[in-house]
């Protein structure tokens, strides 16, 4: 421990000499050396911003720009430690990077992606484990922290999108069921609701027997012979009256529109 302390003191001393020399000479090679000596500081600080969804390498790169600026402006004779002097510059550069990327707009996508990955991992783990996985297990599978995993599962729900082809975990043997199979088709009767209004008034305009045939045939699903029996006329007659009624309706409804 004592050795380490004296070692870092020595390093500190060397550092001051190096900075003083760089201040005088502005030697690019010296600057490179100073950059390399402080890359751990940049990595450390960049690591703090890791869970905002940008790759660490990108954050380290922009942090390095801050470091270089700090090295260029640092004056060791003012008595400030370089790490203290450089930290606001490095962090400032990293935060500006987030700001300039208008990162806030992309957050939903990051959460959405992590949320989808979490759902997938949950489903896979449920299959292999035979029980619902714990958050720790899901986080481990995702390579994310428990905190991130929870956040994505909690906040990502609002943005969740699922593929129509995603397989539904059925408890039966039928594993080929996809989400799309559970979705209904567009209900055509909804789109014809407007037309029904017209039909109603058109039906009123028919003579009573024609109207009775249409209602029996198409609303009560009776066959022509059943209608014939009901009205005590021949089936041929029903057929003729029905055709006439339909023509009549068609005319009435076309006129309306």
């Amino acid at each position: 421990m004592a050795q380490k302390t004296s070692g870092s003191d020595g390093a500190q001393e060397d550092l001051e000499t190096l900075f003083a020399r760089y201040l005088r000479t502005r030697d690019p090679q010296l600057r490179d050396r100073l950059v390399l000596m402080h890359q751990n500081l940049v990595r450390y600080l960049a690591g703090k911003f890791m869970n905002r969804g940008e790759p660490l390498d990108d954050l380290v790169q922009v942090g390095m720009i801050g470091l270089i600026n700090a090295i260029d402006r640092f004056d060791a004779s003012r008595g400030t430690k370089f790490s203290t002097y450089a930290t606001p510059t490095i962090v400032g550069e990293i935060r500006r990077y987030f700001r300039d990327k208008a990162w806030s707009l992309k957050v939903p996508r990051r959460l959405q992606e992590l949320n989808q990955a979490a759902s997938k991992a949950q489903e896979e783990l449920r299959r292999t484990l035979g029980r619902p996985p714990t958050i720790q297990e899901v986080a481990l599978r995702l390579g994310a922290s428990e905190e991130e995993t929870l956040e994505a599962m909690e906040l990502g729900n609002a943005y969740d999108t699922v593929s129509l082809d995603s397989k539904m975990s059925g408890d039966g043997e039928n594993t080929a069921t996809s989400l799309a199979d559970f979705l209904g088709a567009e209900d055509d009767s909804l789109t014809t609701i407007d037309a029904y209004g017209d039909l109603d008034s058109a039906l009123d305009a028919l003579d009573p027997r024609e109207r009775a045939i249409i209602v029996h045939r198409f609303f009560s699903d009776m066959s022509q012979s059943e209608v014939a029996k009901q009205l005590n006329i021949s089936q041929m007659h029903v057929s003729r009256l029905q055709n006439r009624a339909l023509q009549h309706l068609k005319r009435l409804m076309n006129n309306d529109s």
């Binding site: 390093a11 751990n40 500081l41 450390y44 600080l45 790490s83 962090v91």
Partner: peptide, 20 residues
């Protein structure tokens, strides 16, 4: 540990970070 070896005080750094 690498930072400490470089003579950086991480507690001080944390306080600085909070202020930013």
């Amino acid at each position: 540990t690498q930072l400490l070896a470089d003579g950086v005080d991480t507690q001080g750094l944390g306080a600085l970070l909070m202020e930013i």
